[in-house]
Amino acid sequence: MKALLSSRPVLWFLFLFNAVVAAAAPFVVDGTQGIMSAVGMGVVSLGAGAGLVRGRGHRKAAAV
């Protein structure tokens, strides 16, 4: 399962999907629930983005 979640296509999907949901949540859901949804999805998106950046540096080092 870890290999699937750390693959580049899955990380890109998690990053983009969660970023879009985080941007739209405060407008779709009212009040505190919309804000907390945006924060939660934003954290997941940032985690996936960090995985993409970390994986990119690791792949360059392995190719050298």
Rank of each mutant, 00 (worst) to 15 (best):
M1N: 12
K2W: 12
A3K: 07
A3C: 02
A3D: 13
A3N: 07
L4M: 11
L4W: 15
L5R: 04
S6Q: 08
S6D: 12
S7D: 14
S7A: 14
R8W: 13
R8Y: 11
R8F: 11
P9F: 07
P9Q: 05
P9L: 05
V10H: 04
W12D: 06
W12T: 08
W12H: 13
F13N: 09
F13I: 15
F13K: 08
L14N: 13
L14F: 15
L14H: 13
L14A: 14
F15S: 04
F15K: 00
L16Q: 05
L16P: 02
F17H: 05
F17R: 09
F17T: 11
N18G: 04
N18L: 06
N18T: 12
V20R: 02
V21R: 04
V21P: 03
A22P: 04
A22C: 10
A24R: 11
A24L: 15
A24E: 11
A25D: 08
F27H: 14
F27P: 01
F27I: 08
F27R: 09
V28I: 15
V28F: 13
V29W: 12
V29Y: 12
D30F: 10
D30H: 12
D30I: 04
G31I: 07
G31K: 02
G31C: 06
T32G: 10
T32A: 13
T32Y: 12
Q33F: 15
Q33L: 14
Q33K: 13
G34K: 00
I35N: 12
I35M: 12
M36K: 06
M36V: 14
M36S: 12
M36A: 06
S37F: 10
S37Y: 05
S37C: 08
S37M: 08
V39G: 02
V39E: 07
V39A: 10
G40L: 05
G40M: 04
M41S: 09
M41L: 15
G42V: 03
G42W: 01
G42F: 03
G42K: 02
V43K: 01
V43L: 13
V44F: 14
V44S: 00
S45K: 03
L46S: 07
L46P: 03
G47Y: 07
G47N: 00
A48D: 02
A48W: 01
A48G: 04
A48V: 02
G49D: 03
G49S: 04
A50M: 09
A50Q: 09
A50R: 04
A50T: 08
G51W: 00
G51I: 02
G51T: 01
L52E: 01
V53L: 15
R54Q: 05
R54S: 06
R54T: 12
R56L: 06
R56D: 08
R56T: 03
R56W: 14
G57N: 02
H58Y: 08
R59S: 08
R59V: 03
R59W: 05
K60C: 07
K60P: 03
K60Y: 10
K60N: 09
A61C: 06
A61V: 07
A61P: 00
A61Y: 08
A62V: 08
A62K: 05
A62D: 06
A62M: 11
A62Y: 02
A63H: 01
A63R: 11
A63W: 00
A63Q: 10
V64I: 10
V64W: 07
V64H: 08
V64E: 15
